[in-house]
Design a protein around this nucleic acid. Structure first.
Length: 404
DNA sequence: CATGAGCGC
């Protein structure tokens, strides 16, 4: 019947108070809000185990009119240095999570806070929630204004996008979830038009580059990057009108010879994308090294200064096939350690066993390395992260890997 | 440059 779906009046006077400083108590909230009218109850929500504040509370007023007044007069009121974010208690999370009416704002000048953002956007409709994102250094320069109705959001975007706020031109657009943004970025990437070309040397200008690439289709721009003296830096960009032409240009030109050099042509990337890609690439190489050298690479420490690659190789050559022997150098001087890599793990193991005997006979000292990353070294063992498994310490007692 | 988090007795 009707009684089952009707909303009790008491919920209408229930306010959600968010973004609370963790030390804010019921008593403090009572002190701030009770002047507005009689309060039925206040509850700061806390973790059941630790009893730490979850950073939000409910303030239940006896009269709806009082709650409404608090809502307009005391939103973003600062308690313990933080503006509290008032919302009507709304147990159904669907509206909050739908994202409808939620607006994203960026390029906000540092002094713009929750309140000034609210004031800048309040004329477009009822705001459910408004917030500038901050860290220890203050504003991070972007925020959110969540309107009750999508029409308000549309109006706000229409009127506010691109306007100056404290001399900064702000961007205002529909909020997009992380997932949405990522798939959008993926689509952009798939439909790229800008081609990056490198390794064409100094003898290049826009006209020449244009001649070479215009046969793949009409371009929007052609650019050769130059240093301060105006010399070509050996790379540049050709932006096509159509993605298919850009792709075609890459397929045909990548690896081609130009000015006697092999040029590279590929999708132009933003700096950040390039950086993260390089980082991933580097990490992959490292992983490969770990696998490749697992069990075959020896680490040798405390080498005499005059030991070179050849000495090292000779010393270990009787144990198997050496794929590399390297004394690490620092501007012409030995760093006192190096690596010997065998073609098979059995050879490496033999080398350690045999050298162990020999070195002990010489009054020296041998240790096995530890393979696991993140574990504490135990005496006479050495932690490695790149697949080196054996360590042989040559040198007087008293020095150990801990000196290294 | 930037695309949250948030609902109880």
């Amino acid at each position: 019947g009707d009684s089952e779906i009707s909303v009790p009046n008491s919920t209408m006077a229930s306010l959600y108070v968010g973004d609370l400083h963790h030390e804010v108590t019921e008593a403090m909230l009572y002190e701030k809000f009770s002047p507005a009218g009689p309060i039925l109850s206040i509850r700061v929500c806390r973790d059941a185990v630790t009893h730490r504040s979850l950073g939000y509370a409910y303030v239940n007023f006896q009269h709806l009119a009082d709650a409404e007044r608090v809502m307009t007069d005391m939103n973003l009121y600062i308690i313990k240095g933080k503006p509290v974010r008032l919302m009507w208690s709304q147990r159904d999370p669907s509206l909050r999570k739908s994202g409808i009416g939620n607006v994203f704002v960026k390029n906000l000048e540092k002094s713009i806070n929750n309140k000034s953002l609210y004031d800048a956007f309040s004329s477009f409709g009822n705001i459910l929630s408004c917030k500038v994102i901050t860290d220890d250094n203050g504003s991070k320069g972007y925020g959110f204004v969540h309107f009750e109705h999508r029409e308000s959001a549309e109006r706000a975007i229409q009127k506010m996008n691109g306007i100056l706020l404290n001399d900064l031109k702000i961007f205002v657009g529909h909020f997009k979830s992380r997932k949405d943004r990522e798939s959008e970025l993926g689509a952009q990437t798939r439909e790229f038009t800008n081609v990056y070309i490198k390794n064409f040397g100094e003898d290049m200008d826009e006209d020449r580059l244009s001649k070479i690439f215009e046969k793949f289709g009409p371009t929007l721009s052609v650019k050769v990057m130059r240093d301060d003296c105006g010399r070509s830096k050996g790379f540049g960009f050709v932006n096509f009108q159509k993605h298919e032409d850009a792709q075609n240009a890459i397929d045909n030109m990548n690896g081609k010879e130009l000015n006697g050099r092999q040029i590279y042509a590929g999708r132009a990337q933003k700096k950040l994308e390039r950086q993260t890609q390089l980082q991933r690439h580097f990490e992959q190489l490292k992983q490969n090294r770990i696998v490749r050298y697992q069990g075959v690479n020896l680490y040798i420490k405390n080498l005499d200064d005059d030991i070179d690659d050849e000495n090292l190789r000779k010393e270990f050559s009787s144990f198997g096939t050496i794929t590399s022997a390297k004394v690490m150098m620092n501007n012409g001087r030995s760093k006192g350690f190096g690596f010997v890599c065998f073609s098979a793990p059995e050879e490496a193991t033999t080398a350690v066993t045999e050298m162990n005997g020999r070195l002990v006979a010489m009054g020296l000292w041998v240790a096995l390395a530890q393979q696991k990353k993140g574990t504490k070294p135990i005496p006479n063992q050495m932690p490695f992260e790149d697949g080196r498994v054996q360590a042989i310490h040559l040198g007087p007692p008293g020095r150990s890997f801990l000196d290294f």
